[in-house]
Design a protein around this nucleic acid. Structure first.
Length: 98
DNA sequence: GTTATGACTCCAG
DNA sequence: ACTGGAGCCATAA
């Protein structure tokens, strides 16, 4: 199957759009659902993240990416996501659950 | 063709 | 818990 880069980006954005309110996912988790590596997810968001709730996607350890760190923490806190010392409580809000 | 860069993740010390 | 190194994959020069 020929997987065009644009299709992959679209699939990533679709998954991010599916993240429920108050929940948080990781680059690796999204990448797994789409079938790509975490770096590919990060690039997809940097490109078209403006159209999806990008702030519901954090790193594997619960810390947000640097360029948007402060902004993301603020948005998550506003959504009711438990944030501890700059780190999201993934155990409580991780999505998908498994 | 090679090299450098980036909204990442994993493993070892 | 923190740091460093290696792996990974697409784009830019």
């Amino acid at each position: 199957m020929t997987a065009d880069p644009a299709d992959v980006d679209e699939a990533v954005l679709d998954v991010v759009e599916d993240i429920p309110v108050g929940r948080v996912s990781t680059y690796g988790a999204v990448g797994r659902l789409v079938g790509v590596g975490p770096r590919r997810v990060a690039r997809a968001l940097s490109r078209g993240g403006a159209a999806v709730p990008w702030y519901r996607v954090v790193r594997a350890d619960g810390t947000p990416a640097e360029p948007v760190r402060a902004r993301q923490l603020e948005l998550l806190a506003a959504e009711g996501v438990p944030v501890r010392r700059g780190r999201v409580d993934l155990d409580a809000v991780r999505w998908p659950e498994d």
